[in-house]
Design a binder for these strands. Structure first.
Lengths: 133, 133
DNA sequence: CGGGATCCGCACGGATACTG
DNA sequence: CAGTATCCGTGCGGATCCCG
């Protein structure tokens, strides 16, 4: 970076205007679960138990391996899942939810249930809104 | 690569590898709540009742008016909140959660509680993970 | 006051190639 | 098999100006 410009200003602005919100735990948690693959990984591991890398990549069809690896790493870092390497040949890697990860998965499950119960209602609302333009 | 490029290939790929997941209601709902301002607006309107545009923009300090307006519009479109214009001078606009919006807010509240209960545990896990590099 | 319209940077995520 | 490294397009979101 040659000339220190926008990044600094934003970083500076953030601490002044966002001070009380950035301290809020719900804010930090949002950044975690708002990643669209997080909820999917949680759901996959929560409903089907421990799984290997290749199983997950097949289950979450459409995810690039970059995103899958990146998301798994951050979840491991947060202690929501464990990564176990078995030195077979070729190597076998298994991912499994921790107790902490399981507790979050249960909360997210309620959100999933809400979606299944109300999503069609939302869809109807959208059509109505779009038609009265 | 001048002719027929990436957008097409991706659009094509999407329908074949993502077919069953895109049908899943939880997937569509994710796109809604994964917007970081959605949860904040829900929380603000849920805990403090109906509020004006300027009140919301102050409460969610740091949000640009573009994002605030855009998010409010999409929530109104989905029937999660109502937008009421009172022809005073200058004009007064009030936003209020619908019953549907309230029901989602209650589910999101559980997520917020989880965050407040476990976020420090997550923070400890992160430090441990970072230290053993 | 409560927006709409426009311009634009950059960071997020996809695609590809290579490795132990 | 389970990644790492790299390049690169684009779309999200911030900044700015203007309007009823």
């Amino acid at each position: 970076m040659p000339t220190t410009t926008a990044a600094q200003k934003r970083a500076h602005a953030k601490v002044e205007y966002d001070s009380f919100l950035s301290q809020c735990p719900s804010r930090q948690l949002l950044d975690r679960i708002s990643d669209k693959w997080v909820a999917l990984i949680l759901a996959a591991l929560g409903s089907e138990g421990p799984q290997r890398y290749s199983e997950l990549s097949r289950r979450l069809a459409g995810v690039s391996q970059k995103m899958l690896t990146q998301t798994l790493r951050s979840l491991e870092r947060d202690g929501l899942l464990t990564r176990t390497v078995t030195p077979t040949v070729p190597v076998t890697v298994t991912y499994e939810l921790t107790d902490l990860g399981l507790s979050l998965q249960r909360v997210m499950w309620a959100v999933k249930l809400w979606a299944e119960a109300h999503m069609d209602e939302v869809l109807v609302n959208r059509k109505q809104y779009d038609n009265r333009l």
